[in-house]
Design a protein around this nucleic acid. Structure first.
Lengths: 228, 228
DNA sequence: TGTACATCAGTGAACGCGCGTTCACTGATGTAC
DNA sequence: TGTACATCAGTGAACGCGCGTTCACTGATGTAC
């Protein structure tokens, strides 16, 4: 079999008519088509391969040049969804502020980000609760990662209270749990109503404050030995 | 058109071969079949009418004697799911205990109940995040109802701290939010491992305790005027 | 630079299948008298 | 009690449709020399 040196073309990829460019353009079109089809009522598992290829402007058979099947496209979407979110989180964690401001600021940033990336979040939250096992596991791992990172951050905030590592995880999970539900609530609000988004930011900020207040007084009141 | 006196047969319904009995037996078989088919990976919207009738042991056309279509079966399932849950909640609220015990006890009761009614909860939680608009709205209303009831209960617990009604709603929602996520976590645990269920009860109880601690000190620290 | 050949993304037709819905029907149960 | 008729849950066949997947193909791009 003949093996050729492959011309590397990092720059300007996707802009010319090369094989590679065409390939990645179609691939991206399939991804975009799937995200766009996940409108108000649709689950990823209710999308048909033919539907996606039609929306992407290619023939059904072309799909197989890019993905093994719909499952494999699903995993790609999980990956794309969280790659950006992880970056976003890293940025937020980078700049510590006075805690009071930090909660509201982070919440505003997050909700704004969800709005911006609505399609990804809609996909991820639906798959988390009702997706195929593979996709579900992938998303759960991502969430676990956030919980761990958050637990590390909490250790700094409540360091002098000697909370156990299990306690920190427990609190971090509580926070992430509420963030998931807040995310669902944003996605249900019709877009383009900034006042309503702001009400939700206020609400969620207060909820986080309640949690942090609880975290703050945790050790003082729970010195009792753990339940059997 | 001829109108007959209809023989009322409340007792022994479903046990004989009467028209009414046969009717309700088949209807119930369709409901059970749908719930059973909602196994590990399936969404309600991915069930086909033919699949449900097949599992129920009737011919596809028979479905229409009982429901207008799958949507209408879906709404029936929401109704069944929450009718029982509401009753359960009423019972729990009936017997106040010392708060510390109350949290753990309620949590144990709830998680046990979810286990017992797994099929209904699996259905409800999936539909809430990814269902058809109708079903979703129905479930959201049920949740709103729980939040309101809980807010009323919280008013009694924190009555002397003069929390506003909006604050009580906010806290109640925080609690319900976490309960939804806890429910998802139970459903993901393989059934029949009581030790793991117990670990989840411990975890969730601690989380609730954090929230209640936060609620307890809320007014003391948030006397600042609300954010713009 | 020019030519002959290789690669491979996308095409278009075809397949068998399960789907939702319709319809005239059957036969057991229920009612009138 | 006995007969003739009404009701209606469930049947079975049929329909047109969109589905996932396969296959040999086309034609533009890429490579060797």
């Amino acid at each position: 079999m003949a093996v050729y040196k492959k011309k590397v073309k990092d720059a300007a990829e996707g802009e010319d008519g090369s094989h590679d460019a065409r390939r990645s353009r179609t691939r991206q079109a399939l991804i975009e088509a799937a995200l766009d089809l996940l409108g108000e009522d649709r689950t990823f598992s209710s999308l048909s391969l033919r539907e996606v290829t039609k929306a992407a402007g290619v023939v059904p058979a072309a799909f197989y040049r890019h993905f093994r099947g719909m499952d494999s496209l699903g995993l790609e979407l999980v990956d794309e969804s969280f790659r950006a979110l992880r970056a976003q989180m890293r940025e937020v964690r980078g700049k510590p502020l006075p805690a009071e401001q930090l909660i509201r600021n982070s919440m505003e940033l997050y909700i704004h980000y969800v709005r911006e990336q609505e399609r990804y979040f809609r996909f991820a939250i639906r798959e988390f609760f009702s997706g195929a096992t593979n996709t579900k596991l992938a998303i759960r791992n991502e969430l676990r990662f956030f919980v761990s990172e958050l637990a590390t951050d909490l250790a700094l905030l409540v360091v002098d209270r000697r909370a156990t590592s299990a306690d920190l995880q427990m609190m971090a999970q509580l926070i992430v749990n509420n963030m998931v539900m807040v995310t669902e609530q944003i996605l249900e609000l019709p877009a383009g109503r900034p006042e309503e988004d702001q009400l939700l930011v206020d609400l969620a900020t207060k909820q986080m404050r309640v949690i942090f207040l609880g975290v703050g007084v945790w050790k003082q009141t729970s010195r009792e030995k753990p339940a059997a």
